[in-house]
Design a binder for these strands. Structure first.
Lengths: 154, 154
DNA sequence: GTCTAATTATTAAGATATTAACAAAAAAAC
DNA sequence: GTTTTTTTGTTAATATCTTAATAATTAGAC
């Protein structure tokens, strides 16, 4: 039986556990959850994204995303619209309120991130990014947020 | 606004998303969820652990652990007992069935881990471990699974 | 053009995360 | 020894994850 605490999953989980509460505290000031912020974060960069694209980019599983978007909608931050060209597609658009939030949240988040810049030197960051990418692109295509795809071999 | 996809949290989340489905598929063969396995994994190494110690070691938040342990108990894999010396403490003990499961699950899990050994060379693993530990031990003590502790400054 | 397969979104069910609040027991202070 | 504080476990409420199954469209094959 291998070492549990030093296994790759536990290493990653522990790092995230140390990392995220600080950011969540920021989101909470604006009544946002971490996932809600992630959706907004992507829309601020590219508004009107289809749900599936949003799921991939935010790493939020599609079935969960439905609820996240709906709560954002109830909060008046986004709207849902069917695509005119492909009626299967649901696009998520920011409202004025959702757009306005960017200017408030972003500075705080950026400042929190900045605290990490000096934490490791550029070479370490490069190595870390490369290793994470390597791990993420390994695995037989599993791990994308489209859970219902995995194991579709019939 | 910084790069979202290359942010530390997203790097870690993506790696985990690629990593875990493979392991979960193994656990599922035995009717176990990932968290249930983590609890068993720790008990196989040290039986009779108190709930709080179990929460820290498995990185499962204490309120969630209650449910995880209870489902394991209903499945006949563990038992709960009050400590005789400190009646606040609830210890979790393996049943015979829970103990027997180790011999079945461990080989499969070890084999899956082994597939990663050759994936990065020893020096990369060392560097990765060091960086994750560094991140985990950074942050003001936040991130431990005892959520109600965070921000207890009154 | 019609039938079939693939894509996009959604619902459902059980398990877990996150935060806050609370009860019981033990430890520390007085 | 009683009061206060800390520790350990638990419940509650809301949000999300994970997996499987299903509806609505669209794309492809015939």
């Amino acid at each position: 039986m291998r070492n549990f605490d030093q296994s790759l999953p536990m290493l990653l989980y522990r790092a995230l556990n140390a990392l995220m509460p600080e950011f969540r505290a920021i989101f909470r000031q604006f009544g946002l959850t971490e996932r809600q912020w992630r959706v907004l974060r992507v829309l601020w960069e590219e508004d009107g994204k289809p749900l599936l694209a949003l799921a991939e980019r935010t790493l939020i599983p599609a079935p969960s995303l439905i609820g996240v978007v709906d709560r954002l909608r109830k909060g008046g931050l986004v709207e849902r619209r069917r695509s005119a060209t492909d009626r299967r597609v649901v696009q998520v658009w920011l409202t004025d309120g959702g757009r306005a939030l960017q200017a408030e949240v972003t500075p705080l988040v950026d400042r929190a991130y900045a605290a990490f810049d000096g934490f490791m030197d550029p070479e370490e960051w490069r190595a870390l990014t490369a290793m994470m990418d390597k791990i993420a692109s390994r695995a037989n295509g599993a791990g994308d947020p489209l859970a219902h795809k995995v194991g579709d071999e019939k």
